[in-house]
């Protein structure tokens, strides 16, 4: 009887229910999320059984592009570049994927991607994914040998594997195909990823807390030393972050207020170099003028 009463009540709600639940019937992810799902899934298909075909197609496309003299951004040369790149060299994929080798290890760049070779020495290889996505096929490492990949958000250390790192504006995605990798985020947290595991690292929230805390200290006018420490920590763990401009600006002024003239001027030069169009530049110059006019507060 009780159930019948509930059912009756439910019937009374039914028109509204149908409308509301029905509105979710065709609910879909945002277009960019859908594309990420499809592309992520396609990568997995590629490595299951079609990698060879896809790779051959990419090679054919590369060769054709070179042959007809197009693809100015394409660095691919029909297969991974066998030259061992020097530290500091930047590898860029244009409209087509490209590959290069660092010793025996292969690096495959997706279109519109950039990878910097930070170090390429026997026993120590360090790369930085500056933009886009790169896949790494790492040969078995010898004892003590290091293979690292950095983004603005994570440091991936290889334990002998095949994996991909994708650098996005606020996050990095690490996908492991084979073997094992150790990933450290900017807050120092470490996770191990195994085959078919994928993890997105978006460390901004925790690091932004450092910046917020520093700004609170500065706004309260005290504990500038502590604020400087927090800002330096934020900047070292978030190179090229979206809030770098703000952090650098306040770090520079905090040093100026403490009378650290040399340091403040050095940071101001860095700020001008990195953010020449910044609206904060004028205010920064005014703040530094105190250094020229007299003792710091």
């Amino acid at each position: 009887m009780n159930e019948m009463r509930h059912d009756h009540d439910w019937e009374a709600l039914e028109p509204g229910l149908q409308e509301i639940l029905g509105s979710l019937r065709n609910a879909a992810p945002p277009p960019d999320a859908r594309e990420r799902i499809v592309q992520g899934a396609m990568r997995r298909v590629g490595r299951r059984s079609l990698f060879g075909h896809g790779f051959e197609l990419a090679l054919a496309a590369s060769a054709a592009a070179v042959a007809i003299g197009v693809g100015l951004h394409l660095w691919g040369r029909g297969g991974p570049d066998q030259t061992i790149p020097s530290g500091g060299s930047l590898h860029v994929a244009g409209d087509l994927p490209t590959s290069f080798k660092v010793y025996a290890h292969e690096v495959h760049l997706s279109p519109e991607s950039q990878v910097e070779v930070v170090a390429a020495e026997a026993g120590r290889i360090e790369l930085a994914v500056k933009a886009g996505r790169a896949t790494f096929a790492v040969e078995k490492l010898r004892e003590g040998e290091v293979f690292r990949v950095r983004t603005a958000h994570v440091l991936v250390e290889v334990v002998g594997t095949r994996f991909a790192v994708q650098s996005e504006s606020h996050c990095s995605m690490v996908t492991v195909e084979e073997g094992l990798v150790r990933v450290s985020d900017t807050a120092g947290a470490v996770v191990y990823l195994r085959p078919n595991q994928q993890r997105r690292f978006c460390p901004d929230a925790r690091n932004d807390a450092l910046l917020r805390q520093a700004l609170v200290l500065i706004s309260e006018g005290g504990a500038l030393d502590e604020a400087i420490g927090l800002l330096e920590k934020y900047l070292s763990s978030n190179p090229s972050s979206a809030l770098e401009e703000e952090a650098l600006y306040h770090l520079c002024l905090a040093h100026a207020r403490l009378g650290h003239e040399e340091k403040a001027r050095e940071l101001a030069r860095e700020f001008r170099h990195k953010f020449p169009e910044s609206a904060r530049l004028e205010r920064l110059e005014r703040g530094l003028a105190h250094l020229r006019e007299g003792p710091a507060r």
């Binding site: 992810p29 999320a33 859908r34 899934a41 997995r44 994928q198």
Partner: peptide, 28 residues
């Protein structure tokens, strides 16, 4: 099927980021 799988993941209780990852995992 991407829309459908993502929608299922969300309606079964995942947030958008996890649902996106889960959808990829489903396809894998």
């Amino acid at each position: 099927r991407a829309d459908q799988v993502y929608r299922w993941a969300v309606l079964l209780g995942l947030g958008p980021a996890d649902a996106e990852d889960a959808a990829q995992e489903v396809f894998a």
